[in-house]
């Protein structure tokens, strides 16, 4: 998440010498700031850093107490590897679909009058306050073989109906997409609001068609938001547990379910820790990708400016 925040101010210059450090620390404001930061730092150390490190240690501990990597080889072979790949695939599908739908929805919202925009926003976000379990059972009532969607399709004599919309990959992706949608809509809406309408008008006045304006002016302007939203929903989806467990079939086991099974069923904390660390690394990889895309696009922009 930290990557989503603005980049930190450059502090290198002032802190290169020890004198600079001392001067900085002796300032009253700095001391006051450090004092203020202490509770948060202690809080994070105890509740965040310590558990992650003990998880890491647990994942490297063999049955005899020594160092081992075999929990990782276990996690990266056989069915565990399949589950990891399925998780990645479902997360990718989810992030692409929620980006597309989120883009359309957010774009539509920016075109609405403020009062309507607020209302639509509410409709997008409010389902998030309902317990995930209730929401998912709602999906079952909607998407089941005899659910609302299939009954309607059958009444309309759509060929092939009823479709299986639950207990397969489609069901999981529908569920996870709906969970991720508020995040993508909120992020994209924020970016789209910041787009200067004048630029669009300028492009049009210079003879660009609607499609050209969209692809060469609008899309590049909202691209940072797209990357952020896509990677955020991908990362959130990686560790998602409830929806895949409830809306998927046996073949849609995701890593989070596997971890749950290892801890709750097999009493196998080491293997579960290894899987947890792998998920964490994947998350970092996603964030790194975000950084990379950003710096590449910055570089491109600078080159364009020059």
């Amino acid at each position: 998440m930290a990557v989503l925040a603005p980049p930190p101010e450059p502090v290198v210059a002032a802190a290169t010498t020890t004198g600079g450090w001392r001067r900085r620390l002796s300032g009253r404001r700095t001391r006051f700031g450090l004092l203020n930061a202490t509770p948060v730092v202690v809080y994070l150390l105890i509740l965040f850093v310590y558990p992650i490190f003990s998880t890491l240690l647990l994942s490297l501990k063999g049955e005899d107490g020594g160092f081992t990597l075999h929990w990782y080889t276990d996690a990266l072979t056989g069915t565990s590897l399949d589950i990891l790949l399925i998780t990645l695939r479902i997360s990718a599908e989810t992030s692409v679909i929620s980006l597309v739908i989120g883009f359309l929805l957010a774009y539509w919202i920016t075109r609405l009058r403020p009062i309507w925009a607020g209302l639509v926003m509410l409709v997008v976000v409010v389902p998030h306050f309902i317990s995930a379990l209730v929401r998912t059972y709602g999906w079952i009532i909607l998407l089941g073989d005899h659910g609302l969607v299939n009954e309607t399709l059958m009444a309309l004599h759509v060929p092939g109906a009823p479709f299986q919309l639950l207990y397969n990959e489609l069901g999981v992706v529908i569920g996870t997409t709906s969970v991720m949608l508020p995040y993508t809509v909120l992020l994209l809406y924020a970016v789209m609001r910041g787009v200067d309408r004048g630029l669009i008008a300028a492009a049009a006045s210079m003879g660009a068609g609607r499609l050209v304006t969209f692809f060469r002016v609008y899309l590049p302007l909202v691209a940072p938001g797209l990357v952020n939203a896509g990677i955020l929903s991908f990362i959130l989806c990686l560790g998602y547990y409830l929806t895949p467990a409830l809306m998927g079939g046996p073949k849609q086991t995701m890593v989070a379910s596997l971890i749950d099974e290892q801890v709750m069923k097999n009493n196998q904390w080491n293997g579960a820790s290894a899987l947890g660390v792998i998920l964490l690394l994947l998350t970092f990889a996603g964030l790194l990708l975000l950084r990379l895309v950003k710096s590449v696009s910055e570089a491109a922009k600078n080159r364009g400016a020059a």
Binding site: M1, L4, A5, P6, L187, A190, R193, G194, G225
Partner: peptide, 13 residues
């Protein structure tokens, strides 16, 4: 872009 930053910060908060 300034505006979007603030929005994003709000969102993160």
């Amino acid at each position: 872009m300034k505006d979007t930053r603030i929005d994003r910060r709000l969102f993160l908060r």
